[in-house]
């Protein structure tokens, strides 16, 4: 006969400890808290590192590093650095890309979620997701050898001919098509699948009762989509836009390959430009002087802060939208 171990008396110190860990709740909670703190610590340490290792550049150039100027210099020989052309390039290309991508991806999402016949849905879904998984350097190569000469160069030339008076569309366009417009278009192609795939999932997650109710009230399909489904899923769609914007802001390889990497004085979309991520990728490995690498790190810091701010702004928008929609309508 097997002898059962006697349970320890309640007063025994070991039993207290065992009780403490008995269900693992506490342990689990501790691990999860630790992991969440890790994310926070990681963010802070990245920020701190960038801040710390750009201290000389920050003290020497001060605010002039960031301020808009038409005659910015980025001169590693004489150690004069101003980051405005890169800040402008990043903001312009990302925002234009987002503007171009948003209607297209929303259209794709609506079609896939609401209108698409079943036999077409699976292959289309699959293709959209595949597009999101293409490495950026492939987009860069395609952009450089196909998209720039075949689409961007003629498009840019025509835009410059028609709207040339507006500073944003001032020419001349380089014959290869390398331009901020090219970068924005390639970026928009890159973020369309991200926004479209998430927005589609958001729309699909909306309960059918909403559609049925709307149709029962006599709405057309278009009215149902536009006045019921889109507002219902707005916070989710905004989340998709944030992800798309994040990709556009930080994209390095594809942009470097098509934007022309030139520090331009003009504000035109049709001229070559430069972005923050590109200048870091291009020059960091060969930054010889201390100040040059510190200036590049400061550019990295600006990019980091800008991404944080834009994300916070977008979060705020989501929160505003969400707080306006009724509780049960949130996705």
């Amino acid at each position: 006969m097997i002898k059962q171990p006697q349970p320890l008396p309640e007063s025994h110190p070991l039993s207290r400890i065992r009780q403490f860990f008995q269900h693992g709740d506490l342990l689990w909670r501790a691990i999860l808290v630790l992991i969440s703190i890790l994310v926070l610590a990681l963010m802070l340490s990245i920020g701190w590192m960038l801040w710390q290792s750009s201290s000389n550049a920050r003290t020497i150039f001060g605010l002039s590093f960031l301020l808009p100027t038409t005659d910015a210099s980025w001169d590693p020989v004489n150690n004069l650095f101003q980051a405005w052309p890169f800040i402008y390039g990043t903001l312009l290309t990302s925002l234009v890309a987002l503007l171009l991508a948003l209607p297209v991806s929303l259209g794709i999402a609506i079609f896939l979620a609401e209108l698409c016949p079943d036999w077409l849905r699976t292959p289309l879904n699959w293709l959209v997701e595949l597009l999101a998984a293409v490495p950026s350097v492939v987009y860069g190569l395609w952009g450089l050898f196909v998209f720039l000469p075949m689409v961007v160069a003629p498009l840019g030339t025509n835009l410059a001919a028609v709207f040339g008076q507006i500073p944003l569309f001032a020419g001349p366009v380089t014959s290869s098509g390398a331009s901020r417009l090219g970068a924005a278009l390639v970026l928009s192609v890159m973020i369309i699948p991200t926004i479209a795939a998430i927005s589609r999932d958001v729309l699909l997650a909306i309960p059918n009762s909403q559609r049925e109710a709307s149709l029962a009230l006599g709405s057309t399909q278009w009215e149902t989509i536009w006045q019921v489904l889109i507002p219902y899923g707005l916070s989710g769609i905004l989340g998709a836009v944030i992800l798309g914007l994040g990709r556009a802001l930080g994209e390095t390889m594809a942009v470097t390959m098509v934007i022309g990497n030139s520090i331009e004085t003009s504000a035109s979309l049709l001229r070559p430009g430069y972005t923050m991520a590109s200048i870091i990728a291009n020059e960091f490995a060969e930054a010889v002087t201390q100040l040059h690498s510190e200036a590049l790190i400061e550019v990295g810091f600006v990019l980091f802060v800008m991404t944080l701010l834009l994300n916070m702004l977008a979060r705020f928008l989501v929160w505003r939208v969400a707080s306006r929609t009724p509780q049960e309508a949130r996705v």
Binding site: W74, P76, V77, I263, E283, V288
Partner: peptide
């Protein structure tokens, strides 16, 4: 612009 690995 001078002579260096990166110049303006």
């Amino acid at each position: 612009a001078g002579g260096a690995q990166s110049v303006e």
